[in-house]
Nucleic acid binder design. Structure first.
Lengths: 399, 399
DNA sequence: GTTATTTGTTCGAGCATTAAACTTAATTTG
DNA sequence: CAAATTAAGTTTAATGCTCGAACAAATAAC
């Protein structure tokens, strides 16, 4: 949570309009008024104010092209990207990425630094992040208005949007990362789990606006999940929710990174697949805890060529995944489940056994209410998500 | 959902005040203003209006007893129970119970009718419920103000707060129960799953006001759950959520009532315990699908006397329960899980293995955030819950 | 009795929102 | 090409909700 700025409140209507423009892109006032479900008069007032303040501008696209009907033509308005910015940091294994998010919610620039994150102490971690933020501020922020806040997307367990309880990228635990940053920069700082960020980014796309209950599964090195409940990212108030990957498949199954046995992740995570593959196939030895993209691709290629061992592996993983989804659906029954993450590359090999598993475990009524489909994986979703989170949390105020 | 009264809107503030009085009981205006977090001026206005309308009254409890400090004494106000009423029906196996809920949310009177519910066709079911409601209207409602709505608490799967997709009490499926009732009586009708009703009733107690994420487990003939997310009953938009009992324990486990295998319910439900007990102990033959309270009590007594077979049964059930809770906590991480239902009678025998199961499956961070404890079972919770649900859904309007 | 303290009411200011009337800017039609 | 038509956007005045502030009421303490 933030440490600074206790209760400044921007008008909720203004924030809704700003958000509508971020989600739906430039819009005419009439259309905005339909989106936010307020009268044109209200929208007119708010936009007028913001245009005068320089945060929005009218955009004249004189392409009489198509769709131009009778009557006064619409004039679309857009956010001025330079109005303000946020700085976000993505912490993953051996990598710290910093990005500047502009006022529209886009990533304006990013920079990545490689370092041995697992060797960092808590103060060193803070220092590394402070440096990243300062670097971003120095090099990217000029030309932009004020910094509205700082966001942190963390692989791992974030508690109370405040402290990193545990992360695969770190060897230290329970690091309060927010307080020192807030103190250092005098800004609101928000930390969030990376899967939640991705869920946020996806839910923010126009096509998912109506869907209030959805889950985004992140297959990859680990197995994560972001949950949208009631239209908002669900973090279980302690932040430690949606740990789909550590849902159980078999109590006496293989050991998982988390130290327990039989987690879904220990059947579906990259390391699990590669571990089992190496036992049966002739594959290069490696840091088995973190197989690379290329190594995983090799497995996929084998499956594509019909290799029965590879196919069998994916089939088993699909079964475990289906088991986990069965429980997820029984408990939450989200209307949509998207499967994403780098692991979607193997979706076609996972899907059949996953669906079989689901069919075995769920009554039709439940199954029929939930749509499951893959969603193309894209690295930048995390950044877009944390940017959206910060922009949505800090009310915008006119100066 | 309701079919009548499309969008009449009572003031939200008024509804909040009414609800605060229902939850916290009679209160002075100052205290009310603290509870609803509005200024005394606003509360004064609203209560004045309602007192004038006869829906509230001041109550003079002249017991100078204790707590009387300096200053003008508080005058508590209470809801007038007769102001209005709701009629609720609880449908369970071979029983239809009807109750009148008064304006304060209490059950003013109930009546129960036994009949072979599984023999009913859809129209016969509707007829039986209509009769129950009419009987209630005739015999209990005189003396009360208008009927604000009708509520249905149903054992089983309710879809879209509209149709009974499946119920153990019925042999028919997908019965739209709401439309005919709404048409017949010209009132808003709400149907809800019984476990959700109970969760609602419990969450409505003053001591749980602050807890926004909680789960109420219902052990008994079946295993149900009610989920409170963000302070509201969660029904997954389709109503078919929180099916904890049909969460999986072992894919190849015993068959469950739902037709699938290995559900938690098929290890923890009364029928599962009794089924396994009969295989090993000398117990009376019976309708094994629905063992009676007394029969289950026999099992408990055996455990109390240290019978190893009975203890072993409960231990196994506890293990399954713990497995299910592991997944629930990993996914939702509610801050509180209450275990209730008639099955709590055996809680002390279930608990040790349940906790062991949880310890094996969950990392401490997650486990530490969730409190699990039993909650005394009380038949009337269902009725109180559905009454609260109807009262909370129908905005109150001054005539 | 006088003062202090707390509860509750009343009144007016402030704010957000909207309906309705109006202005603006285009297209279509005669 | 002017007049009619259509649709977007603005302005204004009215409504309604909420709250601060002043005030009234009812008691205990002194």
């Amino acid at each position: 949570m933030n440490r600074i700025s206790p209760d400044q409140t921007g008008s909720p209507t203004r924030d809704r309009i700003l958000n509508a423009l971020r989600v739906h892109g430039p819009q005419a006032r009439v259309d905005l008024s339909a989106i936010v479900e307020m009268s044109p008069a209200t929208v007119s007032g708010v936009t007028g104010e913001l245009v005068r303040a320089g945060a929005m501008r009218e955009v004249f696209e004189r392409e009489a092209g198509e769709g131009r009907g009778r009557g006064r033509p619409k004039v679309t308005i857009e956010l001025v990207p330079q109005t303000a910015h946020v700085i976000v940091v993505k912490l993953s294994i051996n990598e710290i990425q910093v990005a500047l998010g502009d006022f529209t919610g886009s990533t304006a620039a990013t920079r990545t630094r490689s370092l041995d994150t697992r060797a960092l102490s808590a103060p060193e971690l803070v220092k590394a992040i402070v440096e990243a933020v300062e670097g971003c501020h120095r090099e990217m922020a000029p030309g932009y208005g004020p910094c509205l806040g700082i966001g942190l997307a963390v692989q791992g367990l974030v508690r109370d949007s405040d402290v990193i309880a545990w992360s695969p990228a770190l060897s230290v635990r329970d690091v309060d990362i927010v307080t020192p940053l807030a103190d250092r920069f005098g800004l609101s700082v928000y930390a969030a789990n990376d899967a939640n960020c991705i869920a946020m980014a996806i839910r923010n796309r126009p096509e998912f606006q109506g869907i209030d209950n959805m889950a985004v599964l992140m297959l990859g090195p680990g197995v994560g999940m972001g949950l949208i409940v009631g239209g908002k990212v669900y973090d279980g108030r302690t932040g430690a929710a949606a740990e789909f990957g550590h849902t159980k498949y078999q109590m006496d199954g293989p050991f998982c990174h988390c130290g327990r046995r039989g987690c879904i992740e220990s059947f579906v995570g990259d390391y699990a697949l590669y571990r089992d593959a190496r036992a049966m196939l002739d594959l290069p030895n490696t840091d088995a805890l973190h197989p690379s993209e290329e190594q995983m691709q090799v497995l996929c290629d084998l499956a594509a060529r019909g290799d029965p061992v590879a196919l069998g592996l994916f089939e088993q993983a699909g079964r475990a995944l289906g088991f986990g989804l069965t429980n997820l659906i029984a408990l939450i029954s989200p209307s949509l489940i998207l499967v994403s993450g780098s692991g979607v590359r193997a979706y076609e090999y996972l899907e059949p056994s996953m669906r079989r598993s689901l069919g075995d475990g769920l009554v039709e009524t439940l199954l029929a209410n939930t749509e499951i489909r893959p969603y193309a994986w894209n690295e930048d979703l995390t950044l877009r998500g944390i940017i959206a989170l910060v922009l949505g949390s800090v009310p915008f105020q006119l100066s």
